[in-house]
Nucleic acid binder design. Structure first.
Lengths: 235, 235
DNA sequence: TCAAAAGTGTTCGGACTACACCCATGA
DNA sequence: TCATGGGTGTAGTCCGAACACTTTTGA
């Protein structure tokens, strides 16, 4: 016998803002919504929470459904609750944002959901309040990446410093001095130099680096100051 | 006719982690739970969301019920969703954290809820996962206060720099150099010196200051670096 | 040999820290 | 006059930002 009898129950969903990086540009993964309302329109990938899972498990399940992968970087962003956000029935949605290495999973995309990668700045209009979620996720990512090495989650195992810089420049829609950038990044001690070079993007070639996972975990929460004049980007 | 028919509905609640500062120490406001399960035990103040309000409105309503006040600093922290967190029925809870000037409201506390202020470090055991919520809120507050002037929300209109320092020391459970502290705080330009002094805490007396609200709003998101070696406190 | 990108070096100013010292006042 | 906080000053160090220069190599 429940004592919460007078209270109204409602639907709880998870929506995922999924960022990817293809080596040059930052992208967002969205799907064509499969059900009414707004069927056929672009939407964040989401799903309803099930009785025996918590929100993070739900977000992981949703991500696996769509991309086939597990163990992605996943972070709870915020819960959205405007009463009329879903016109059909009241649904509160918890937004999660995910960072994935696009190259690894580009071909595994589920066709069932008509998933597609868009350039972050050229994405289509999204349904409901999903636009607001993406904007908040972007803002949060900028904030976080200015202090913590979170963007490494978007890179493949081996990457070059110019690639890393392109990623930062994509996230901040800005341009940084490459000389200061590489020195700053190397000074963190997070990178391990490899013997091979990447010759695709220049004649001289740029050395590959690999993330020191141990140091990465240990130093993640420290203030690392990756970008110059971070205040500029926190509007 | 709903198309989400197969999905399970559940209860959604808000719980508030309410911090206060009495001029010397940091405190937490908790209540005696009025209903089963766990009736009579200490708990965060909370309530179920209603059909026509969003989460922030709900948190504000809950705060007003308890303290009689509106317009408090309020921030969504995280949503807690372990299936068995409430043993009676599945309830997902959105944790909000609030900062209030304790002096202003100490006497208005609602007796209906048996509310009580505890020293943050000497609080009683709380029900469900409320302990986890408080710990997370504390961590978040430390993080945020190390970069942004959020702690001013805990102070009365007029305050002295030694008081402000006591507040920071309480939050970080640490001791800072008063000479560097005052210089750093004054250099932000956020404080407006008053003519009167506070003579209660020393013979010489300390000047009162007032927050420049305009500059506070404008600079809130900037990185201000209030405490030395912030990395130490981000564990 | 030359263009284009990768990467190292240098200088300057400002911020943070540690610590010494003076100030005001009530008892 | 002295003990007790309040408040200002200073020197050294480190870090970030701006900018010059060298290195490598394919075409």
């Amino acid at each position: 016998m429940t004592r919460y009898a007078k209270q109204k129950r409602l639907l709880l969903a998870v929506d995922c803002i999924i960022f990817g990086f293809d080596g040059h540009e930052v992208k967002l993964l969205v799907v064509k919504r499969a059900m009414d309302p707004e069927k056929g329109k672009w939407s964040l990938m989401g799903g309803f929470i099930r009785p025996n899972e918590n929100l993070k498990e739900c977000a992981n399940r949703v991500l696996k459904q769509l991309t086939g992968i597990e163990g992605v970087y996943l972070e709870q962003l915020r819960t959205f609750s405007k009463p009329e956000r879903d016109p059909l029935e009241r649904t509160v949605s918890v937004a999660y944002f995910a960072l994935i290495d696009i190259n690894k999973y580009e071909k595994q995309l589920s066709h069932e959901y008509s998933a597609e990668w868009f350039l972050l700045n050229q994405r289509p209009k999204l349904i409901f309040d999903h636009e607001e979620m993406v904007r908040l996720a972007q803002k949060h990512l900028r904030y976080k990446a200015s202090l913590h090495p979170v963007l490494f989650e978007l890179l493949p195992e081996k990457f070059t410093i110019p690639q890393l810089q392109e990623l930062y420049e994509g996230i901040y829609d800005s341009h940084f001095d490459n000389r200061n950038f590489s020195r700053k990044v190397l000074s963190t001690g997070l990178l391990v130099k490899q013997k091979e070079k990447d010759k695709k993007n220049s004649k001289k070639g740029a050395f590959f680096y690999r993330l020191d996972r141990k140091k990465y975990k240990a130093d993640f929460q420290a203030f690392l100051n990756f970008i110059p004049n971070p205040d500029k980007f926190l509007s």
